[in-house]
């Protein structure tokens, strides 16, 4: 079985947090897929960033159940705490903040992913604690 491009790209994100130009060139050589083709695939998917990310990547769910449970307020709170806007990465590269579609934790809304791991039943207090842990 040949190597699967999606798997290669996911591995790269897991290792380095994003898919760098260098990585694209390397994967291109390995798979014989042109660089443009690899960018074409990477940019299609929400979880395959091609720019450097923060050490901690947060994805807050904004789909209806979480929205009903005030996830939009939590995003505003996170923006204030992290001093970045949604979609941005902090200058010190400690955090990136994004929204995401439903992450399948609707029974425990509101929810977010932090470095791929779900955090549920969020409140501002809970988020503060989580952020503190990330910084230490």
């Amino acid at each position: 079985m040949t190597e699967f491009l999606l798997e290669l790209l996911k591995k790269e994100v897991k290792k380095r947090g994003y898919i760098s130009e260098e990585a694209v060139k390397k994967i291109s050589k390995k798979t014989n897929i042109p660089v443009s083709g690899i960018y074409g695939v990477a940019t299609f998917y929400s979880f395959l960033p091609t720019k450097q990310q923060g050490k901690n990547v947060i994805h807050v769910c904004t789909s209806p159940t979480c929205a009903i449970h005030n996830s939009l307020d939590l995003i505003k709170f996170l923006e204030k705490e992290l001093k970045i806007k949604l979609g941005q990465t902090a200058k010190n590269k400690l955090f990136s903040l994004y929204e995401t579609s439903c992450i399948g934790c609707c029974d425990e809304a509101p929810a977010m992913l932090l470095n791929g791991k779900p955090y549920i039943k969020l409140t501002k207090e809970k988020i503060k604690k989580i952020l503190r842990k990330c910084k230490s």
Partner: peptide, 19 residues
Amino acid sequence: ISGAGAYVCGEETAIIQSI
């Protein structure tokens, strides 16, 4: 095979494209 955040890939022909 791990997906990468694309709802549309639940559609069977899109899954195939993605794999």
